[in-house]
Amino acid sequence: MAKAFKRNDGRKVDEMRPMEAKLGVVKSAEGSAMFKAGKTIAIAAVRGPREVVPAHKQRADRGLLRCTYDLLSFSVNDRKRPGPSRRSSEIGMVIENALLPAMDLSDWPYTSVDLYVYITQADAGTRCAGINAAALALADAGIPMKELVSAVAVGKVDGQVIVDIDKHEEDQGEFPTDIPVAMMPNSGKVTLLQLDGKITKDELNSALKLAEKSCKEIQEVQKQAIRAKYVSKEESK
């Protein structure tokens, strides 16, 4: 019989890293939030709705969501060269597409909601932490949304399906599989599904079930962060 699977930090296979979320971390922005999962920290800030520059990108039928994602140069072990890269612009697009299904910007044509997601500390799962922070920042900015989008990276390491992969696990084993999933857990709609590696159909299904369960937990953390901003003052009176 194979040796029982054990995670590096002693977590259960369906256990996520400790999470923390906070609203209003960037005072000058219309809305902002921080989301932390283990050692991964993401900060998101929202500006707008504001006029779209360059003007040829304006749309007469709807507003735009424009997302900038980047790792700060000190966020990873080897210094990340500052400035946009192929990777960061793609992840910006991915975050945008993960959030748009929950939003309706048709009331604000010609405008854009500009979203800035920055990773101050990276330990895998940065795009998921970014999406979680971004959903909170959008809510904080008063942008209408059907639901808070939550995201988590599930995957397969050494033949075992696990949730919320960290950097150690990402590099572990022969063919680690990484599947970032973003969803609106209440309605069960998946807004982001990427797959890097190999996985069987059954394993993918069980991974997605894990992701759904985890996203529900993440959404609770997000809701709690919103409540904490407004309710705590009232209770402490």
């Binding site: 809510a139 949304m145 059907k146 639901e147 808070l148 407004y230 309710v231």
Partner: peptide, 10 residues
């Protein structure tokens, strides 16, 4: 209840 805090999706 009225005048309670609500969150998107609630």
């Amino acid at each position: 209840e009225e005048r309670n805090l609500v969150i998107p999706g609630q």
